[in-house]
Amino acid sequence: MELHQLRCFVAAAEELHFGRAAQRLEMLPSALGRHIRLLEDDLGTRLMTRTTRSVTLTDDGAVLLREARTLLAQADSLAVKFRARGRRQAPTIRVGAIDSAAAGLFPMLLHDFRERRPDVTVKLTEDKTIRLLPRLISGRLDLALVRPPDKPDSRLEFLLLLHETAVVAVSSRHPLASRKRVTITDLAEQPLIVPERRSRPHSHDLTMKLFAQAGLHARIAQLADEKQTIVNLVAAELGVAIVPRWTSRMAARGVRYIRLEAADMNRLPLAAAWTRGTRDLIRDEMLEMLKASLSRYAQEA
């Protein structure tokens, strides 16, 4: 019996849906099912009953779910404890950030933090929220700057920091490129490049919401996963995109960012997240600095 197999089982048992559980663990449903079958073979009992329409726990599965949660919590706590021991010898903080925060908020925060704590090594991991939160839970990150999920994990604490304004990215050769501001109506007939909702629900839903509020239908021409890819597609004149304002700090030739009317009423939330119930002097110091400087950072959002 392996910890990874237990994590697969717990995710499937909590979601009662192999597709959602696999997405949560960033793996294929077939691989998830294989790990659970191996766990069942190892334990010699059936843990789940799966049909084409539903997934249910057996009696043994319900018992194992309770025990597995405790065991995994102990394993995660042990990992955090020993990583903290190592960090006391060499002060380090591991910060995760979504791409726009890595381009916008984090450089300002890092500048201020290094002035106060030049002895601390800061390691940045840039990724999507759905990948950063599991790293927090497992102890691989100490702090993360993320879009707060609709259903936050009870093992994590979240602090809402600010709301990021959206802008419109267009090719520098686009007819709208000379405008200082645009409205959603101006984009009504424009092909849109939109992020995948699975990986970036906040950004995807913001575009859909802005068009719905204007009584218009969003003309989606392309779905893309990474912000840098979206910006590159805009530069190639394949469409326009509604993106967080800090995206404009990413290097991209041939792209202009234009203020979007009504964007102030529809902003993207940014939150700090960390593991609930843990103490970390370096992380807490960075959090306090973040809170104290929020009004200044927010002016740039």
Rank of each mutant, 00 (worst) to 15 (best):
S178H: 13
E157H: 11
G33F: 06
R117M: 09
R87C: 09
E261I: 07
V170T: 08
T56R: 14
P148F: 12
R181K: 11
R34D: 12
A13S: 10
S295Y: 11
G139L: 02
V146M: 09
A11R: 01
R267W: 10
V146G: 04
K151F: 12
A301D: 09
M286A: 09
Q23P: 00
A169G: 08
R135C: 01
S293E: 15
I184S: 05
P107D: 09
R135G: 02
P152E: 12
L133N: 01
A272V: 07
K291Y: 12
V255H: 02
T51V: 03
R276Q: 14
E226V: 04
R94P: 00
L65A: 08
R173A: 13
R179K: 14
S172F: 00
E300T: 15
K128R: 14
R83S: 08
H174V: 04
D60T: 04
S178R: 14
R245Q: 15
R7E: 15
A218E: 06
I93V: 14
L6P: 01
E226W: 03
L290K: 04
T275N: 02
E115A: 15
A103M: 13
L3T: 07
E196T: 11
R37N: 09
R117P: 01
H202S: 13
P195M: 12
L124E: 07
P175Y: 02
R117Q: 10
L160V: 13
R83Y: 08
T58C: 04
T58I: 05
R155M: 09
G239D: 00
L25D: 05
P175C: 03
V194M: 11
L156V: 06
A11E: 06
V240Q: 00
V146D: 08
S171V: 05
F113Y: 13
A214Y: 05
A97H: 06
Q228G: 00
E40V: 03
H4W: 12
R256N: 06
G61D: 07
M108A: 13
L65M: 09
E115D: 14
A221T: 00
P29S: 07
A166N: 11
L187N: 03
E126W: 00
L124M: 09
A188G: 02
R259Q: 12
R249E: 11
R116M: 15
R131Q: 11
T45S: 08
E189A: 11
T185L: 11
L161W: 10
A272Q: 04
G277Y: 10
